[in-house]
Amino acid sequence: MTFAQTAPATQTLIRIDDLCKSYSLQDANGRTVTNQVLFDINLTIQRGEFVAIMGHSGSGKSTLMNILGCLDVPTSGSYWLDGQNVATLSSNELAQIRNQSIGFVFQGFNLLKRMTALDNVATPLLYAGVSRSQSRMRALELLRQTGLERFAEHQPNQLSGGQQQRVAISRALINHPPLILADEPTGNLDTQTSAEIMQLFTQLNEEQGMTIVLVTHEDDIAAYAKRLIRLKDGHVIVDKNNTVADFVESAS
């Protein structure tokens, strides 16, 4: 195992081998019921990819997303992120991975309330041990890039949905993580704003080579990605390059 952990230093960012996830629940009679959500998932994502994970509700896409984001751990199988087997790490090490290697963008934005946009963007840096003044400087720089400089001192409830999501994206980017995980990032946005946010993702992917994994159930959003993975009942049923043809086909 120690041998394996030092292994890949390639273009591969994510490698998942035989990953399973099941939940144990107590039913009404107090018996333990095991509910398996993911079955033997094998997946490899290279640096610089833009992947959309699709599936209906209950397909296991959110569970996969949580495991990819190191918010949850697999029941069996291995998950290599950036050359590290994440399945064996402690909760503190996972926190550091979430801080350094992953940028999260959520459907509900998940900004911290009663905190300015600037402080929201700067918080991951504080957890990384960077000083307050330096954190704020870098946060301001990112807000400038996403065009929100003048909203730096606004609190989330004073911002529109699109603006909040931009703040969240800025926050995701601040530690220069190799991976951006976006969970239904446009779910709470109107079509026009959705398109803007997706263009921002595309731009980050194409211009900065950012690896982006996107979970969505909307075909037109998935169409922005270059690769499509479709889950059904915990199995990968489609994994191919995304073309307009696919999009048209699934839409029909």
Binding site: S91, Q96, R98, F104, N110, P124, Y127, A128
Partner: peptide, 16 residues
């Protein structure tokens, strides 16, 4: 709880 979840997602460890 949600705030705690967000903080954990962006890198807060248990100690923080």
């Amino acid at each position: 709880t949600r705030e705690i979840g967000i903080r954990m997602a962006i890198g807060a460890n248990q100690r923080a």
